[in-house]
Design a protein around this nucleic acid. Structure first.
Length: 496
RNA sequence: GGCGCUAUGGUGCAACGGUUAGCACGUAGCCCUUUCAAGGCUAAAAUACGGGUUCGAUUCCCGUUAGCGCUACCA
């Protein structure tokens, strides 16, 4: 609407750090950025924040990129790697040093590291009010605390006053400068380098300025970092962007979502067989709502409706049962042509795919079969496992199904008779009602309930107690397969 | 410990001063039925607590409590 009219085209970025896989929190941040960018017809940029050589695992970038692709999140620029942009950060750091906005710090790193385990600050050192941590470094007046060591570059945070910024989700925010520590901009150099790698705060700000980012949409865990970054923008002579901090995703116990809560890697949902669009719909509704009660929102609608105003300020619990519900909804409601490629890919993965299903009559059969199966499918791999008998003659008969529906001693005889009756139907007359009549006529002639024969037949032709309605299944399998499977089932029954 | 953020059923969201507090997931029951789903109907279930402001608070303000975040030469 109007929030971006004076700052030109929207430019946003997703900036993961390759210290782990793409987790659902990051995925949602990426999704929100993407929805916002596409809704605003702006640009989406991917930037890899790999300035920590120690923790960084370059091979993880591949997985992150795959996760984003699966999610359907694409980008217009990048990926850019911060590890390849060090000159920019060094230059910015030196500029800040020259202007007096930063200073050299000779303190040993351990002096500040480790939170509660940090070295106790001396009584005469400026500390955050009531806290043990050191907020003002004694090096800021130019006197090296530990001469002879290589210095890091720290930002000279103003004494007194406040730093403000606007957050599209949380509103106007104001932080007291006395709470902000003299944070490190550039690590101390090793060997003969003047400085080491850039720290997070400097890299982010330098890049966001350089890439002309207009809206910084990221997790709410960064809200306390924001005043530091605003200070940096000012010191670098740039205008701060609009921030939008999105609430975090929690596990069922309301603690921050982590591995012990189960799958947090987006790629695990892909391999489990969730539909990306269902996953996207679910994720979009975690911390955002379009305002009404609609929940089944296809990506097109998400794109139309997304706005930062609808983003919630409260953390949300990742509710897997609801994700599963979304998946079954998509499995059932998607236009069949949207679902077919997913099923095709699944059958290829499990080597059940036949090329004859790619087009023509084969495609029609495939569409009809998938349509018959879909109400009972929960995850894509169910097409290969649970529905195997629809795509292959090579399937097992489930022992529990036998025990349940082949109990009656008359079953072998009944199935044999049914096979002969069905075999007598001309292929051109093979349809739901013909099968229905043939079976019910037999049941009546034998003086048994149709249900007994229906259930026994189902086990014989698909090997399971659970399947789509029998006569629809028979139509899809066609006469010869049904008859063959009935005949084949008899020795299996005797053996079982 | 300090600073910050948040608070509607078990969960995700709606209601942006006036509703019998709505929808969905999940749960329970019923219907449908040829197995199992799906679908339909019904039920139980919430404004954290205490103060204000107001004719009127879920909604605005303060406090308490709880949860979460930040508090690294991590990002």
């Amino acid at each position: 609407m109007s929030e971006n009219t004076k700052i030109g085209p929207v430019r946003v970025r997703f900036a993961p750090s390759p210290t782990g896989y793409l987790h659902v929190g990051g995925a949602r941040t990426a999704l929100f950025n993407w929805l916002f960018a596409r809704h605003q017809r702006g640009a989406m940029i991917l930037r890899i924040e790999d300035t920590d050589a120690e923790r960084n695992k370059p091979e993880l970038v591949q997985g992150i990129v795959e996760g984003l692709r699966w999610l359907g999140v694409d980008w217009d620029e990048g990926p850019f790697y911060q590890s390849q942009r060090t000159d920019l950060y060094q230059a910015a750091g030196k500029k800040l040093l020259a202007s007096g906005a930063a200073f050299l710090c000779y303190c040993p790193a351990e002096r500040y590291a480790g939170g509660d385990h940090a070295v106790e600050a001396q009584d005469d050192e400026p500390k955050a009010p009531g806290a043990r941590r050191i907020v003002r470094c004694t090096c800021r007046d130019g006197k090296p605390s530990t001469p002879g060591t290589k210095p890091a570059l720290r930002f000279r945070v103003p004494i007194g006053g406040t730093t403000k910024f606007f957050d599209a989700v949380f509103g106007e925010r104001e932080f007291s400068n006395d709470e902000i520590e003299d944070f490190v901009l550039l690590r101390s150099g090793k060997g003969d380098e003047e400085f080491g790698q850039s720290m997070y705060q400097l890299g982010v700000v330098v890049d966001d300025i350089d890439m002309r980012i207009t809206h910084v949409i990221r997790g709410a865990d960064h809200i306390s970092n924001t005043p530091k970054q605003v200070l940096l923008y000012r010191a670098l002579g740039a205008e701060a962007p609009i921030f939008a901090h999105v609430p975090l995703i929690l596990g069922p116990d309301k603690s921050r979502l982590s591995k012990r809560h189960g799958a947090t890697d987006v790629n695990m949902y892909r391999t489990e067989g969730f539909l990306p669009e269902a996953f996207r719909n679910f994720l979009a509704l975690l911390g955002w709502a379009p305002g009404g009660d609609e929940e089944f929102l296809r990506t097109k609608e998400l794109l139309e409706k997304f706005s930062l105003e609808g983003v919630s300020r409260t953390n949300a619990v990742f509710d897997r049962p609801k994700l599963e519900w979304f998946n079954t909804q998509y499995l059932q409601k998607l236009p069949i042509e949207d679902l077919l490629p997913e099923v095709e890919a699944e059958l290829k993965r499990s080597h059940l795919w036949k090329d004859e299903w790619a087009s023509g009559a084969g495609r029609e059969w495939f569409a009809k079969t998938v349509d018959l199966l879909r109400p009972r499918i929960r995850l894509l791999p169910d097409f290969s496992s649970w529905s195997r008998a629809f795509f292959s003659d090579d399937f097992e008969i489930d022992p529990e199904a036998k025990a349940k529906f082949w109990k009656d001693p008359k079953v072998p005889e009944l199935l044999a008779k049914l096979a002969e009756k069905l075999a007598a139907i001309a292929p051109s007359d093979w349809n739901h009602d013909a099968c229905d009549h043939a079976l019910r006529a037999l049941a009546e002639a034998e003086g048994i309930k149709a249900g007994l024969l229906i259930n026994a037949t189902r086990v014989a032709i698909v090997g399971q107690a659970v399947a789509p309605p029998l006569f629809d299944t028979m139509v899809v399998l066609a006469r010869d397969r049904v008859v063959n499977r009935l005949r084949r089932a008899l020795p299996a029954q005797a053996a079982g």
